[in-house]
Simulated scan of single mutants.
Amino acid sequence: MLPLFIARRHLFSRKSHSVINLIAGVSVVAVAVPVMALVAILSFHNGLADFIGNMYSEFDSDLCVTPREGQWFDGDGLRQRIEALPETETVSATAEQNVLVTYSDRQWIVSMRGVDSLYGGVVPIERRIVQGRYRLRHGDLDEAVIGQGTAYALGVQTALPEPLRLYAIRPGSGNPSFLPVGLYNEARVRPSGIYALDEQTDSRYIFVPLGFAQRLTGAGNKISSLEVRLREGVSPETGKRAVEAVAGTGFDVKTRFEQKETVYRMVAQEKWIIYLLLMFVVLIAALSLVGSVVMLAADKEKDREMLLAMGGTPRLLRRVFAWEGVLITACGVAVGLVLGVGFAVLQQEAGIIRMAGDAFLMDAYPVRIDPFDLLATAGGVLLLGTGVSVLTAAGLSKRK
Rank of each mutant, 00 (worst) to 15 (best):
L327E: 04
S224R: 00
L382M: 14
L230A: 07
V28Y: 03
V263G: 04
K271N: 06
L383C: 10
T66G: 01
L296R: 02
N185P: 07
L283N: 09
L396R: 03
A309V: 12
L22E: 07
L166A: 01
D116K: 04
I284D: 02
G25F: 13
P163R: 00
G385D: 05
E305H: 11
S57T: 11
D299H: 10
Y103S: 08
D116G: 13
G77V: 13
L100R: 00
I284F: 06
A30L: 05
S43P: 09
V341Q: 01
V388A: 03
G147P: 10
S27I: 06
Y103T: 07
Q148W: 15
M355V: 15
V367Y: 05
V243D: 13
H17G: 11
Y119N: 08
A297R: 00
K222Q: 14
L22V: 15
W272C: 04
G139P: 14
L375M: 14
G336E: 02
S224K: 00
A219F: 09
T94N: 03
P236M: 08
T90N: 08
I169E: 09
M266I: 12
A7N: 12
V294F: 00
D202R: 10
A344H: 07
S224H: 00
R368Q: 06
R133D: 10
L197T: 14
R113W: 01
R319M: 11
R170W: 05
V110P: 05
N185C: 06
L283K: 03
F44G: 14
G147H: 06
S13E: 08
I52D: 05
A356E: 15
M306V: 14
F12V: 09
T329L: 00
V99N: 02
A7Y: 09
S288K: 02
R81Q: 12
A359N: 09
S225G: 05
P34T: 08
G385P: 01
P3M: 02
